[in-house]
Amino acid sequence: MIRSELVQIIADENPHLFQRDVERIVNTVFDEITNALAKGERVELRGFGAFSVKKRDARMGRNPRTGESVPVEAKAVPFFKTGKLLRDRLNGKET
């Protein structure tokens, strides 16, 4: 499923909404999550999962082509942990 398909499903279920409003709704949900992570905040969506930011220490990397060592800066990366309900549903345990 891609973004436009998600928008279409929700638009079909809500005939009173304009398609462009549904697009804005879907975009807002995901932009809001990205914005929170960019501020170092967590996003916890019970049953679905939690988005957080993990710190990666600086390390010595290696150029795979030349084998040369190169320093890699410390950085923050987005992380997602699946919620219990969704994890159970993926494994056929419907509630």
Binding site: E32, R42, E44
Partner: peptide, 13 residues
């Protein structure tokens, strides 16, 4: 920061 967003914050947005 320790702030955590929830469904409520997404709905508010």
């Amino acid at each position: 920061s320790e702030k955590t967003l929830t469904r409520m914050d997404l709905s508010e947005a």
